[in-house]
Simulated scan of single mutants.
Amino acid sequence: MKESLIYNKAFEFAIKIVKLYKYLCKERSEYTLSKQVLRSGTSIGANIKEGLYAQSKRDFLSKFSIALKECSETMYWLELLNATEYIDSKISKELIDNCSEINKILASIVKTTKQSLNIS
Rank of each mutant, 00 (worst) to 15 (best):
K35I: 13
N47H: 05
E70D: 14
S56N: 13
R39D: 12
N47S: 08
A67Y: 08
T74A: 02
G45F: 00
S43P: 01
L80S: 08
I44A: 06
D59V: 05
L81G: 00
K90V: 15
D59G: 07
T74R: 00
R28S: 01
A67D: 13
T32V: 07
E94W: 03
L61Y: 13
K63W: 13
L68K: 07
S43Y: 04
C71W: 01
S34C: 02
I87M: 05
I91A: 09
L68S: 10
R58W: 08
L38C: 02
S72F: 02
S89N: 13
A46V: 13
L68E: 12
D88Q: 08
K90P: 06
T32L: 04
E85N: 08
S92P: 03
I66F: 12
S62Y: 15
S29V: 14
T42Q: 10
E50Q: 10
F60L: 11
S89A: 14
T84G: 03
E79C: 08
K93F: 04
L81P: 00
R39C: 10
S92D: 02
D59N: 09
R28G: 00
F60C: 09
Y31L: 04
S65W: 15
L78Q: 03
A46K: 04
K90F: 15
I87G: 03
I66D: 06
N82K: 06
A46W: 02
E30A: 05
